[in-house]
Design a protein around this nucleic acid. Structure first.
Lengths: 344, 344
DNA sequence: TGTTAGCACTCTTTAGTTGGGAGTGCTAAC
DNA sequence: GTTAGCACTCCCAACTAAAGAGTGCTAACA
């Protein structure tokens, strides 16, 4: 059977109506609301065809039609019109996101919060992983008799600091020497590369005199690098699910929230997701089969990539929400654009 | 009317039964389950008295009795027996909380998670505020041409670092001078004291040559100090509310979760709460009138105080939960006891 | 041949009804 | 002071009935 123009029109109308109303759509509704000069009976025939083709389903005999995942996919790929944000909305987003220009974490947290507020869905965002950051230098600094600070600076401008408790004393000369040796050995390498090296072996010959110091510093060094690999997850808008008819059943709400609580899982899903504006619908998600996800990536320092997105029932305002997310990630990327004074 | 021994016994039985069953308790139930040699009719008379005295209420004529806030207060203060943790439980708690000995944040997060798992309630924890920490010294460190790091070390061992982007250049001598001046002026003062000072005025005369650098560093200095005042809030076990009959109604669940989402509010409540093991019941909470809170404080470095606790319906297992919380906070305090090498 | 009106049929939803059960409060007897 | 007995209240779950929405099919129409 062929998916002709008229079928497409009807399908579009059904999807649009269902996204809006969350109620199964009947033939009469389409005939009246979307003036295409066809009687309910004709539309019924077409609907029957569309159902046979897998685009619609039927909760029960005498209910209207509901779009399938396949229909949403078609809708997203071909039927929906890109939605343009109003100027007020753009302004509101820009002003909120550039408020705290300096701090990435705060900005991302705010972006997630704003996104859930605008979309009435559950939003989330992850910060970039430092996996591909190249080390610029390592510095050890004295704090007090038994404490030093390990500072790692990467080429893309990330600075990370860790206090290290020592069981032995040290001299400032020792620290300087060790800083130089570590910088020399690891400069220009990525965090994940360094972590796969045998760090102690690498610097041992240069630091044979400083066994104890090395023993204390290297574990902290590795821990700090590992932390640089981590991404932070922010989520917001949990309670929005209570306004969605899909989750009016307590059991369903519970299940959904239980999944969202598994932060490691969610983080994983996001990290492994492609870059760009990605929409996955229902079954296309390995888990979360009743949900759709829309995500987009943002860039920091020209390269490090984090993600921002929403999760909700397959019935969501794909067009509008995509626009909002894209606008927000563009905004963030611009805010954290490389500031020009960085060499490499 | 007098609250004699028998009335107390009956009240205790009712509270205990209701905490367990969440169903209004009838006279027959008490008479049968709690063998005190009294007929249902007698118990009914006593119940009627207890209701008159404000310890019980009646959802409707032909339902059993439900304890009032006043009854819970009496129960907590006089009637409940301290509950002793089993050795396995103690062991489980100890091992989980000392796993990550070094990192306070991680430990607190884990404590919150464990607490909600054990109690089946919503748990929360806050990290200590640095409000009363005394500054030990301030250090400015070079990173690259336009970036330095501001390091603040406090007497109780907190180290905080902030990168500062400069619009002007600097020399290492400048940094050293400024570090010395700031250390000299602020050493021994608490974070909140320093924040009330006119910082620029204080150091101006000593640094008249370094106007530009001062202008860049001082705002960061203040921001960092302000961040040291902040406390982090961890919450866990949201989804537990779905197993509580009190929140089987979606609307109630939504309200509760909405309140819990207001992290600033919750943080405030916790910060302003007395130290020690504190139980507040229903109306005793300014907001959250249908809930009870149990919290206890833990100590870090002998002084800095954070809090750990649960929130749930007034019907909760006060005795057992108090014991768990107390055991956990004791454990944390012990883990983060001052390690001895700290002078002051 | 595509479109449409008509109609029987299905299924859900809501309101109304009913009977049983749990528990109280009162009275009167022990 | 305690208790048995009993009428009464109120909730709750199950059932019933009616209304409404929507389909699928048939037959007629352009």
């Amino acid at each position: 059977m062929e998916l002709n123009e008229r079928k497409l029109q009807i399908l579009q109308a059904i999807v649009a109506d269902f996204i809006y109303s969350a109620e199964p759509v009947g033939s009469r509704t389409i005939s009246k609301k979307y003036d295409m000069g066809l009687s309910p009976a004709t539309i019924r025939n077409e609907m029957s065809d569309l159902e046979e083709m897998g685009y619609l389903t039927h909760p029960h005999t005498s209910a209207g039609r509901v779009p399938s995942d396949k229909a949403y996919r078609l809708y997203v790929d071909q039927l929906m019109r890109a939605s343009e944000l109003t100027d007020e909305r753009k302004q509101a987003i820009s002003s909120k996101l550039s408020d705290t220009a300096a701090e990435l974490d705060r900005t991302i947290e705010k972006a997630a919060s704003l996104l859930s507020e605008i979309t009435n869905l559950v939003s989330f965002a992850i910060t970039p992983s430092g996996r591909e950051s190249k080390l610029k230098y390592v510095n050890l600094l004295p704090v007090d008799e038994r404490t030093i600070v390990l500072m790692i600076v990467s080429e893309d401008g990330q600075i990370s600091n860790t206090p290290v408790k020592l069981s032995c004393g040290y001299t400032e000369d020792n620290l300087r020497l060790m800083s130089r040796v570590m910088t020399h050995n690891f400069m220009g390498k990525t965090v994940s590369d360094v972590l796969t090296m045998d760090i102690i072996e690498t610097i041992k010959s240069d630091l044979s005199a400083l066994d104890k110091l090395t023993g204390a510093v290297v574990p902290s060094f590795m821990q700090t690098l590992e932390k640089m690999l981590d991404v932070d997850l922010y989520m917001d808008g949990y309670t929005n699910i209570f306004s969605m008819p899909e989750y009016s059943d307590v059991e369903k709400a519970r299940n959904f929230l239980t999944i969202l609580q598994q932060k490691d899982h969610i983080t994983n899903v996001l990290v492994n997701r492609d870059n760009g504006l990605i929409i996955t619908i229902g079954d296309e998600n390995s888990e979360l089969k009743d949900c759709s996800l829309i995500t987009a990536d943002y860039r920091v320092n020209g390269r490090l990539v984090g993600k921002l997105g929403v999760i909700g029932p397959t019935r969501m305002r794909y067009s509008e929400i995509s626009s909002v997310i894209r606008y927000m990630t563009d905004n963030i990327s611009k805010t954290f654009e490389i500031t020009g004074d960085n060499d490499e």
